Simulated scan of single mutants.
Amino acid sequence: MRPARALIDLQALRHNYQLARELSGARALAVIKADAYGHGAVRCAQTLQDNADGFAVACIEEALQLREAGISGPILLLEGFFEADELALIERYDFWCVVHSWWQLEALERSTLSTLSTPLTVWLKMDSGMHRVGLHPAEYQAAYQRLLASGKVAKVVLMSHFARADELDCPRSEEQLAVFQQAREGITAEVSLRNSPALLGWPSVPSDWVRPGIMLYGATPFEQEQAVAARLQPVMTLESKIISVRELPAGEPVGYGARFVSERPTRVGVVAMGYADGYPRHAPTGTPVAVDGQLTRLIGRVSMDMLTVDLTDLPQAGLGSRVELWGKQVLASDVALQAGSIPYQLFCNLRRAPLLYLGG
């Protein structure tokens, strides 16, 4: 069988969740939307369910998949509901629900006993400066009071989302925090503000609930080195093998478009991995890879099913040698930086390569 595969270290996943708890001193919703960022939502949830305070997903389809797999803890719908008739399912499966728009609040108010007979746990989202979704700060108090008066809500958690928490020298997060604090003044309720970059880099931000996402999977959200992020353990190792070796003289092109031309006699290793597996097509020559535990580089253009690496200085490497594309030795963040991407996208784009779980 084709040797490309992704190894998922479940012990590292547990470690990263516990680190989120340790850093925050708060309850933590493990964010496992988008199939746990490509790591497999069901298996990740099953691994964490005895310790996690709950889970967060993007939509009701993802939440239903978890319930059907036996996950019984709290599950928050980060985008709330898209149609009012989803409220019946939200009640039936005991989901928590974000409300970020007036139409959602009004749909809750209009719901009847046949649709919604049990009050919901609602997370009321404020647009404190992200300008994506969320209620305007000037409307926040009124929305909170209407939720309480509706009789449809058992509990409200106040939340917002930072736009630039991954920029450690940027004042925008402090500005958003000030907007949030002013707009919720006088409301006594639990608060959720800290996502992964805020958890790792903004310890003074208050949060009764934190929402670790990318950090669960062991990747840093920062472009620069950061001491706390260095404690994360990579969860996914994307690997394959050398399936062919070529000996080329100087001056020979490799791959589509002749993006690499050998400057000296070069041993080229062909790897069963390409952009159809999710490896970034735009990763340039020089992007790090490891062959049998030794660092070398990608050369030439990534194609659909194969890519090429430099074996010139690795005389022991050859046919069948193990290649780590990213993982514990080659960090996904380093590959992403070379490719003009982010580790979130690398993980979420993974396809075709089967997931193999370790430490379950």
Results as ranks from 00 to 15, higher is better:
Met306Trp: 03
Glu175Gly: 00
Val289Asn: 03
Phe81Gly: 05
Ala339Tyr: 04
Gln141Asn: 04
Gly360Glu: 11
His136Ile: 01
Gly25Gln: 12
Glu61Gly: 13
Asp305Tyr: 10
Asp35Gln: 06
Gln294Gly: 04
Leu135Asp: 02
Glu167Val: 03
Gln316Cys: 03
Thr266Met: 12
Asp277Thr: 05
Ala88Glu: 09
Trp102Lys: 06
Gly213Trp: 01
Ala189Arg: 04
Val210Gly: 09
Glu185Val: 00
Gly257Gln: 15
His39Asn: 14
Ala26Val: 10
Gly201Val: 00
Asn51Arg: 14
Ser244Lys: 06
Ala283His: 07
Ala88Tyr: 08
Ile32Gly: 07
Met126Trp: 05
Gln176Trp: 01
Met273Gly: 04
Gly201Phe: 00
Glu263Gln: 15
Phe347Gly: 01
Ala36Tyr: 02
Gln18Ser: 14
Lys152Ser: 07
Thr121Ile: 07
Glu139Phe: 00
Met304Lys: 15
Trp202Asp: 03
Pro137Gly: 03
Asp277Gln: 13
Asn51Gly: 11
Ser204Ala: 15
Asp277Glu: 15
Leu307Ile: 01
Ala154Gln: 15
Arg5Asn: 02
Asp127Lys: 12
Arg2Leu: 06
Ser117Val: 05
Tyr275Ser: 12
Val291Pro: 10
Leu158Phe: 08
Val302Cys: 06
Met236Phe: 02
Tyr17Val: 07
Arg259Lys: 14
Leu105Ala: 15
Gln46Tyr: 01
Ala88Trp: 10
Leu77Cys: 03
Val228Gln: 15
Pro315Lys: 11
Tyr140Asn: 00
Gly251Cys: 14
His282Trp: 02
Glu22Val: 00
Ala230Phe: 04
Met1Asp: 13
Ala229Pro: 14
Arg264Thr: 10
Leu76Ala: 08
Gly201Trp: 00
